[in-house]
Design a binder for these strands. Structure first.
Lengths: 198, 198, 198, 198
DNA sequence: TTTTAATCGAGACGGTACGTCGCGTCTTGTT
DNA sequence: AACAAGACGCGACGTACCGTCTCGATTAAAA
């Protein structure tokens, strides 16, 4: 959670306006969509949303944090994972979905947020807890099923396997800036699976 | 090269001051070391170096570009690559060296630069041309030797192999923020090599 | 009285907390002592006193008004006036006392309050009714006794005389910012008395 | 001079824009006319004048200082002093002029500035050096002529006399808030002169 | 005894201004 | 030309107060 200042549960004083929280997040994402997260300044978010700057600062430490919060709470519900007939197919589909999420407009923002997370511990925490770890948890479950079903070797180092799968994807998107085609994803997944075959 | 505005070779007026170029780079790196690249503003670089802002802008488009330039021209000479008796050992040593470079103070800056490159095409270009591609070229040569020497299978997809090796490293440093131990590097390299074994 | 909103005498609901009124005034004066009346903001008064902002606003229109109230109710009891053997001596003592009150920490606040009264009608009213006019009333009584006792001429314009006495003092403290010595007070009083001599 | 940051005489770098200085002062006075000096915020001055906030802060420490500067440089040229046939008449005319200056819109600003000067040393300095002292110097010259011409007694304490004259005026305008009529000025001047008669 | 109504604390809210910083451009005189 | 110096318009920063508001909890007089 980027939002570090949660209103005290005891609900003393006037309660926070949840509507304001929502509209601020929405406007922040809008602005980031239009011109990158550098465009989502607190001033601009405040102006567009009609919410006072002080109210925004009461909830988030800076503009990118708002974008992160809004972006994730917008995208997370959209990402399920489909069970396919074989584990390798399920993984392939999941990775394809990830690649799709990291492409286009939304992908630009996510890459930009990842970039900002390099020097902002708050963003880093949020990025990890709400984006990386959940997906990794899902991935791990799938792979464990692969082990049980005999598609993967019994003593496979699943964490290493996840590092290789996700690493291969993120490396090309964020480090070497090489577009990822469906074919390249397929051969990546295929090779990794083969190397962990029973 | 970040530096896009090269002085025309035999220009008429007063020639550029190379000393200024050097001191500016040095100060920019210093400032980045002290407080991240956000600390290396053009104003501050100018003040510390005693070089006028206009002089800086004549050479670089913005602050991070100076840092990138200074950082790379400082770190590149330090990175050679040692030929070991086996290819896997050579690769392991190279990766270890990379991990070392990406750890500590210098690593913070490099990760920070990579972060900024996500929204700055100029930085991205420089990062690719001067950091990623040269190392990848070297890595490729090593792997090709591995194929020739029979340590790797003849039809190995070397680009995929490089993606897996580098991807595994960068993913943990820049995406999942998981510290890389010597052991984890060793098992990563070992696994990838095994999967491309002849 | 600065305090404009008096609770209706026999009201129905919960009665006002007089203790709160007192502690608020005390804290306001404390804060003004520490950093001028600009330091006595309603927020700060509320925080230090532990009294809610709304409770403060129920009694006073703004921060300076609290300071004015607290300051005057603190200083007024301390100012008596001593009857001397001659009227001129009594006046001199009174003026000396005024000068003392307008010097040092307390003087800074009073001058500051007078400054604020230049653009705040509420403060002006309070300043007049509770500080200027009472002292002037006392001064007038003394001078009238001077007339009766033959120390002053029978048809003396006592209001003009008071203007000259007080004017001479305030002018130096508040307008020309020239320190007032005991000697300068003495010669001021002496001259004015001489000019109204019988 | 309120303006404390004078561009270095050596005129290094781009010279300051005098036009900007002028328009800023003009707008500041305008704003103060419209709603008191509290209305002359740096933000508003910047917006109305089209001059950047940073440019304003490069010259003045705060809004009231701009008003003070603009106000004085606007009003000072307008105030000469007329030589009358007798010294008492000259003084009376000068005081009348002062009362006029302290009445109406301009008077409100001047009183407001004097109020602010109570807690702002910069304003106080400017107020003294550019408003109080020059007028007092003139007044002193007039009185000295009065001594020479035998209208005043030879050993008159002219500083005390000035304190009484100016004090009587400022006291009523700024302290007791009693309107000054022409008659009251006349009787004030008359009495003071009589008390310093030869 | 139950309303009823004013008070209290806490603190959120929309505003507005603060004074600073950095940007990238510009205008000087000097080298 | 390039250079040091530094002014300029711009716009964002994060903070502080303002005065208002909405809560739930007290506290007494009126019903």
């Amino acid at each position: 959670m980027v939002e570090p200042n949660i209103a005290t549960a005891a609900s003393k004083g006037r309660p926070r306006n949840d509507e304001a929280t929502r509209i601020v997040q929405r406007c922040a994402v809008e602005l980031a969509n239009e011109g990158g997260i550098a465009n989502a300044t607190v001033d601009r978010i405040a102006q567009r949303s009609g919410v006072a700057k002080s109210t925004i600062y009461r909830r988030w430490p800076n503009g990118p944090a708002v974008v992160m919060d809004g972006f994730l709470s917008e995208i997370l519900p959209l990402i399920g994972y489909e069970e396919k007939s074989t584990v390798i197919q399920t993984v392939e589909a999941t990775i394809m979905q990830l690649v799709a999420a990291l492409s286009g407009k939304r992908g630009d923002i996510l890459r930009d947020l990842l970039g900002s997370a390099q020097h902002d511990p708050v963003l880093r925490e949020a990025f990890l807890k709400r984006w990386i770890e959940p997906r990794r948890r899902i991935g791990r479950e799938v792979l464990e099923r692969g082990v049980m079903r005999g598609e993967l070797c019994a003593d496979a180092d699943l964490d290493l396997m996840l590092d290789l799968l996700y690493g291969g994807v993120y490396y090309r998107l964020v480090v070497s800036f090489t577009p990822l085609t469906k074919d390249s994803v397929r051969s990546l997944v295929a090779h990794v699976f083969r190397s962990f075959a029973p």
